[in-house]
Simulated scan of single mutants.
Amino acid sequence: MARYMLVLKYDEAVAMATPPDPAIFEEMGRFNTAMVDAGVLLAGEGLAPSSQGAVVTFPDSGGDGTTVSDGPFTEARELIGGFWILKVDSLDEAVSWARKAPFRAGERIEVRRVTEAEDFEGIAPESVLEQEKELRERAEQQHGG
């Protein structure tokens, strides 16, 4: 099994101009319930509008430091509106779940596999991989996972 992230992408300006039909919340509840019932949903959250966020930009090499820009992110054509993390057998299964999401025209779901430490074996130093494993175990214990 592998973990996949489903990332909802949308045009925030269009979404703000036409609020969602209240029925979408019931449809979303059914969609999330189906994933929980199937035992595939590990996490899922919606995100607040970009006006409530910030962007931290790192300097080019030799730069003086990071900059922070408050939202909204008007220059972005597409923003992330939410996400789910699923544990499924394949990309095809993750895509199958994404196809069932109750979204409006123009919204998209990007499906990406979440990397695991094994993906970096032979690339990252073994000490770093061991530290990553320990940190994941500690975080899981802290959050009751």
Rank of each mutant, 00 (worst) to 15 (best):
29 G>C: 02
47 L>N: 01
93 E>R: 01
133 K>E: 10
87 K>M: 05
140 E>T: 10
91 L>W: 00
14 V>C: 06
116 E>Y: 12
1 M>Y: 10
28 M>Q: 09
18 T>M: 13
27 E>V: 00
30 R>T: 00
73 F>W: 06
95 V>N: 00
82 G>E: 06
97 W>E: 01
121 E>W: 14
57 T>G: 12
88 V>A: 02
117 A>E: 14
45 E>F: 12
74 T>G: 03
75 E>I: 06
52 Q>H: 06
110 E>Y: 05
110 E>L: 05
114 V>G: 10
23 A>P: 10
128 V>C: 08
28 M>A: 09
110 E>I: 04
9 K>T: 13
42 L>M: 11
136 R>Y: 11
104 R>W: 08
12 E>W: 02
48 A>L: 10
88 V>R: 02
88 V>N: 01
102 P>T: 02
10 Y>A: 08
102 P>D: 04
19 P>F: 08
84 W>G: 01
142 Q>E: 14
137 E>I: 12
61 S>Q: 14
79 L>A: 04
30 R>H: 14
68 V>G: 05
126 E>R: 14
80 I>L: 01
85 I>K: 04
119 D>G: 07
9 K>N: 12
33 T>I: 07
69 S>Q: 14
126 E>P: 14
92 D>V: 04
36 V>H: 08
18 T>R: 15
46 G>H: 04
122 G>I: 00
46 G>R: 02
71 G>C: 06
21 D>H: 08
134 E>W: 12
134 E>L: 13
142 Q>G: 15
69 S>M: 13
82 G>M: 00
84 W>Y: 00
40 V>I: 03
88 V>S: 02
131 Q>T: 12
44 G>C: 04
33 T>N: 15
35 M>K: 05
90 S>T: 02
126 E>V: 10
81 G>K: 03
66 T>M: 05
26 E>C: 09
29 G>W: 05
87 K>S: 03
7 V>W: 05
145 G>M: 15
102 P>M: 03
77 R>P: 03
39 G>L: 01
28 M>Y: 13
103 F>M: 09
56 V>L: 12
18 T>Q: 14
60 D>Y: 15
67 T>Q: 07
128 V>F: 07
33 T>G: 14
61 S>V: 11
110 E>Q: 11
37 D>G: 12
33 T>H: 15
143 H>V: 13
3 R>A: 09
44 G>L: 01
4 Y>N: 06
116 E>D: 10
125 P>M: 07
3 R>I: 01
89 D>T: 01
53 G>F: 06
111 V>W: 07
94 A>C: 05
111 V>Y: 10
42 L>G: 07
67 T>S: 08
1 M>G: 06
